[in-house]
Simulated assay, not measured.
Amino acid sequence: MIQQYLRRQQDESNDYKPVFYDLKQTQDLQAFEALLTSRPHIRINDNIYSQLRELMKIRNPTKRLTAEEYEEKIQSYLGDIPIEKFGIWVYYSWIDRLVHLVDEADFIELRTSRNQHKITAAEISVLSKKKIGIVGLSVGQSIALTLVMERICGELRLADFDNLELTNMNRIRCGVHNIQTSKVVIAAREIAELDPFIKVKIFKDGMTEANMDEFFTADGVLDVFVEECDGVDIKILSRIKAKELKIPVVMEMNDRGMIDIERFDLEPERPLMHGLIPEVDIATLKGLTDAEKLPIFSPMLALENASAKMKFSLGEIGKTITTWPQLASSVVLGGALVADTCRRIILDQLKSSGRYYIDFEQLIV
């Protein structure tokens, strides 16, 4: 009997793009009604009124509105449009849920209202047009979600070839039902649930020599490239491409709060990774074990400056552990550091290259 039930397990889909329905459009209305008919158990979240109430509140910051004034302003804003047709309905197929939202402009106004004036309206407008690419979705997931929560870009390109394993969940925020789901799909879904209007493009095979041009340039050149991958060859090749295209590169090491910045946009002749890449034949770097990567990574990442526990752990790879450790606290810190750095680069508030440490063990003693 149990085996019969277990055979019901369905293969996980790779859907990550929400579907939008504007019920003011006849075709969308018909498709929406068909969806409701075909999915009788669909979960519906219709909290459009609370969003409109918040919109009226932030547009009238100097006045405490009464219930009657809220109602009057909302009705005036709706005009002749029935509230169920106002804004947009968003369907998330992977959780079989419909959500009623205000339209994109109102959504952005609401989503960024608590950023004011740390990020100004003019800056929000600039950021919304920018494209950021991230390779490596362990630290990269935290970075991506922080970028989206602050709305530091309008488009994200995500690359990682790996599926989630239970061992990854010490630093990747997701549920256990995501085991064996693509890391980029997990991140893209989380982004869509945070902000369905941000464009996301995924590369499930990771970054490769074959898709590198597409990753960096398709539908517009990246404004910032965030490199968080384990592949030594891609670490180097992606920087060669970024330098060629004059794209700034940001990397976070996940130890001692080290963040690395290469401003190829301002310094096109700057040596890759500050001149720390050893002389190697890139063709020989594919498929190395973590232990084999260490002699190459060591000068690139200045591992002599790593924390004592990280240095010890590196010596244990292939003995008592299989790869280098990462902690959720460091990953979350990395998300904050990279997001803040990307925002300041895009807004021309940070012009330097170099390596910087936010080492809690030194700062908080």
Rank of each mutant, 00 (worst) to 15 (best):
R53M: 06
S13G: 01
M212Q: 08
E68K: 05
G87W: 04
S307R: 12
G220M: 12
V176D: 00
Q4I: 05
Q141E: 11
N14H: 07
K24F: 14
E361A: 15
D15W: 05
R343S: 03
L327A: 13
E69P: 00
W89S: 07
E54F: 01
G231N: 15
A192F: 01
I143Q: 11
T37K: 15
I179T: 04
H177R: 10
E72Q: 14
T66Q: 01
N211Q: 07
V249T: 06
T217A: 02
N47E: 13
I88F: 01
S13I: 06
T284A: 02
D233W: 01
F161I: 05
F203T: 00
V99Y: 01
L147I: 14
F264K: 06
Q51S: 13
D28R: 02
T320R: 10
T112S: 06
T217H: 00
T323I: 02
L156A: 06
A308C: 13
D265L: 04
D219I: 11
V139M: 08
I247Q: 08
T167E: 13
V185E: 02
G136D: 09
V224R: 05
P271S: 09
A210I: 05
L347I: 09
L333H: 10
A122C: 00
M258H: 12
L164S: 03
A188C: 04
H177Q: 13
